[in-house]
Computed example of a mutant assay.
Amino acid sequence: MASKPITLVVQSRGKPIRKLPKETSTYLQGSTFDLYHRLAAEAGCTVHRLRLTKASDGSVIPNAKDFTIERTGLKSQDTIQVKDLGKLCRQLGSEDDADQILGPQIAWQTVFVIEYLGPLLIHPLIYFLRPYIYSNASSAPSSLQTLSCVLCTLHFLKRELETLYVHRFSNATMPMRNIFKNSAHYWIFAGFNIAYWSYAPTAPTARPGNTPITLLGVALFVIGELGNLNTHLVLRGLRSSGSTERGIPKGLGFNLVTCPNYMFETIAWVGIWLVTWSLSTGIFIVIAVGQMAVWAKKKERRYRKEFPETYRKKRYGMIPGLF
């Protein structure tokens, strides 16, 4: 039996989107992925900046190739609302004109690669250039300094590989000017800040360490990195390539907190801190945990809003018993 065509009423949600059609035709067996792309093309927007919701109950319509219009519960003459998430809908006649107002855009994947590339290069660079950086660095680096460099390098190498082969981004691009702000956190605090003080001749890592504590640090690092990778693989499985649909993640850690990837990230960095015993590492952990706690809280609110009937609410966002 052929799929039945239906007509949907289209409204802007929030700031009006120029040239957004007042209605659109689709099929019950058509995908919401096609609906997103059709509306984006007609409105002159990038599809990654749109969010569609049902006017009847405010529920989000996923951008998914395997999610049909029929599954959303929409019927002919129902109203859908379109929100411009990034204020990028500008009908100026050409993409070049839009870039002049919006500024050059850069892919999120590229942003992540550049962010993590800083500390990935800075740590081994300062480690190997110790004799030229520190006036009294006459001796070879200690075993703890070597271990610190290895752990930090492995951490950010893993980040780069996940960015290239694991992560699927809901938004395609961001303004290029934001890359400087986003990269400062990693280049300055995780790169120069930790590396300069950890590889100095007077650093705690330059002295003999406590073997049991060092081994505990390495164990926490391994547990944290593997747990973090597992969480990212679970999140990847929720979204098909080229779409922005969301789902409810399940698996290791998700029964405890909203974002177990942040929990495992914290465990890994505590492990690095137990190896370096560096104040600079501790400062970075405090800053990073604070930021991740904010993100986890926002994600919990988003899950509750998007899946009000099926999502199991969490009390803690990233660390059980704390926040």
Rank of each mutant, 00 (worst) to 15 (best):
R302V: 10
T68S: 15
E309K: 14
I272R: 00
Q11I: 06
S243Q: 10
S143Y: 12
M318A: 09
Y311A: 07
E162V: 06
G237T: 02
Q11K: 15
A64E: 12
L235A: 01
L52P: 12
W187D: 03
P124C: 03
T202P: 01
E160G: 03
P62Y: 08
P21H: 08
G86I: 05
T231M: 08
V286M: 11
A2E: 13
F254Y: 15
L144D: 06
S94E: 04
C45I: 04
A41H: 15
P124K: 01
Y303I: 07
V218M: 08
A140K: 13
V166I: 15
T110I: 14
S142D: 01
V166W: 00
M292F: 13
V275M: 08
L147Y: 13
I133D: 00
P16F: 07
N178S: 06
M1H: 11
W197Y: 15
P16N: 05
I223C: 13
T46M: 04
G86V: 07
G282E: 01
W269R: 05
S3E: 02
S59P: 03
K313P: 04
T310H: 12
I223Q: 01
M174V: 15
S142V: 05
V9D: 05
H167Q: 01
R239L: 00
L216I: 11
T276G: 04
L144M: 11
S243D: 07
V286A: 15
R38V: 12
H232A: 02
T231Q: 09
V10R: 10
K87S: 12
M292T: 15
L52R: 13
L39A: 08
P141L: 00
A55M: 06
C89W: 09
L20C: 09
Q29N: 14
C259I: 09
T24K: 10
F169S: 02
T258A: 10
L235W: 00
I133A: 00
L102A: 12
A184C: 05
F192G: 03
K22R: 10
I179R: 09
D97G: 05
K65M: 09
L85K: 09
F221P: 06
I283P: 01
F264E: 06
P62M: 06
A219L: 15
G209K: 11
S3K: 00
Q81V: 06
S94Y: 01
S94D: 07
L215F: 13
V82P: 12
I194N: 07
N171S: 09
L28C: 10
E95F: 07
R315H: 14
V294P: 02
Y316T: 07
L226Q: 10
K181C: 03
L35A: 05
E23H: 14
K65G: 01
S135A: 14
L88H: 14
R302A: 13
N182C: 07
G44I: 13
R130E: 04
A206P: 11
M176A: 15
K4A: 11
L229N: 05
W197I: 03
T79W: 04
I287Q: 14
A195C: 04
M176H: 05
L215N: 11
Y196V: 14
E309G: 07
T205C: 14
I126S: 03
Q11G: 01
S94H: 05
V222T: 06
E265M: 00
A293V: 12
